[in-house]
């Protein structure tokens, strides 16, 4: 399987942020991820594509150990962020997740005010020294989430009252507020209409300046629009990984080609 992964032709010269080696995931008796090896770079958008059930979301959830919350899920292999093994016994997933933020498929604002939604992370991690500090953090996060102008006059309104696209940007702002280094996005636009999708995609492109972004998507067009690197997953295997342009124009593996031309999926 390793042969299938293409490592060549890096367009960016960014350093490797996340390195995964021989990652296997089992759900009970199901072997969901088989021998995945991948290097994800800093300040780059990496897209995971593939048909439903191919394991791309599962692999994404390994990166911040969200799979820990599922009883039957077992992860083996080696995932390093900045050279540190995140499955080391000494690592506290709580600290890890502060460093590796996540945005989910369906917008999931807490049933609290917009302000409290964003302030939640900074509060639990103790990032603000005082109220003014927290106000600053919230404002900065909302601006980075590209939603500040829409909500600045109603920060105390409930987050659940926003539209779908606004909710998802709020969730991004919420994730950014804890000042993570990596942002994982699990099909962030699948519940949104086209206009909201465009806004979120634009936002993802901006976030690239500061974060390493990993996005799982169903839409090949979206992967092509927002990502620099693309990984194609199929039946739990990482089939091909390389520059987005190359994957979509000259895939090496026949399975990748079948997928992007719409014959499997």
């Amino acid at each position: 399987m390793k042969d299938a992964v293409s490592w060549e032709n890096d367009v960016t010269t960014n350093t490797v942020k996340i390195a995964a080696r021989d990652v296997q995931v089992h759900y009970g008796d199901t072997h969901a991820i088989k021998d995945v090896n991948v290097d994800i770079e800093d300040k780059t958008v990496t897209a995971f594509i593939g048909p439903s059930g191919c394991g791309k979301s599962t692999f994404l959830r390994c990166i911040n150990r969200m799979n820990d919350t599922i009883d039957v899920c077992r992860v083996t292999g080696d995932i390093r962020i900045d050279g540190e093994d995140i499955y080391d016994r000494k690592v506290d997933p709580v600290q890890l997740r502060a460093k590796v933020g996540m945005v989910f498929q369906k917008p999931n604002p807490f049933p609290k005010s917009i302000y409290d939604n964003v302030a939640y992370g900074p509060r639990i991690h103790g990032l603000a020294r005082n109220k003014a500090d927290l106000d600053d953090i919230v404002e900065r996060a909302l601006k980075r989430g590209a939603i500040w102008d829409e909500v600045k006059d109603r920060l105390q309104a409930p987050g659940t009252g926003l539209s779908g696209g606004q909710q998802q940007r709020l969730c991004i702002a919420r994730a950014v507020a804890t000042e993570p280094e990596v942002l994982l996005m699990d099909e962030p636009c699948s519940a949104l209409d086209p206009i909201a999708t465009a806004q979120v995609e634009e936002l993802i492109d901006e976030l690239r300046q500061n974060y390493s972004v990993v996005i799982v998507t169903h839409s090949m067009q979206q992967a092509a629009r927002v990502s620099q690197r693309t990984a194609f997953f199929h039946l739990g295997n990482l089939v091909e990984f390389g520059d987005t342009d190359k994957i979509f124009t000259a895939p090496e593996d026949p399975r990748t080609e079948s997928y992007i031309t719409g014959r499997i999926g």
């Binding site: 080391d88 590209a146 500040w148």
Partner: peptide, 21 residues
């Protein structure tokens, strides 16, 4: 927007050590 996107000061510190908090 660009200003808002200025790089945060990332907290450095190894994942292998638990901080006091």
């Amino acid at each position: 927007i660009e200003n808002a996107g200025a790089a945060p000061a990332p907290r450095k510190g190894s994942l292998l050590e638990q901080d006091a908090r």
